[in-house]
Design a protein around this nucleic acid. Structure first.
Length: 103
DNA sequence: CTAATGACGCTAC
DNA sequence: CGTAGCGCCATTA
């Protein structure tokens, strides 16, 4: 099992309406954040890549087309995830985020 | 072999 | 709250 497959499996385990970050996935799969991005780039269709966001809740950090970020936001909104004014996912939707520790 | 690049993260200003 | 710089590590030229 490659690190990439482990990343795919982790993402597939993310429940609808929740999101995780590249750093979180990297830590859970023993990979760096960049490797997670590389994995998502060639991810199979059954991987809900839209549930993967940046560390601060940012959509796609910007290495890819801005249009893609729009699509991601639309799909997450369809799952019940809400965003703040700056296109950032609220911390309560993060897996492993503690409600009382909200920044 | 070295250099450049990217679905990122953190710190500094 | 915004941009800029550096570190990170696999892949590509």
């Amino acid at each position: 099992m490659s690190d990439y497959d482990r990343v795919y499996d982790y993402i597939r385990a993310i429940p609808a309406g929740s999101v995780s970050s590249y750093g979180e996935i990297g830590a859970a799969t023993n990979a760096s954040a960049r490797e997670v991005g590389r994995a998502l780039r060639m991810a199979p269709a059954d991987v809900p890549w839209q549930r993967v966001v940046g560390a601060g809740g940012d959509l796609l950090v910007g290495k890819l087309d801005p249009v893609h970020a729009q699509v991601q936001r639309a799909m997450l909104e369809a799952e019940g995830v809400t965003f703040d004014k700056s296109r950032r996912v609220e911390r309560r939707f993060f897996i492993g985020a503690e409600p009382e520790l909200d920044l």
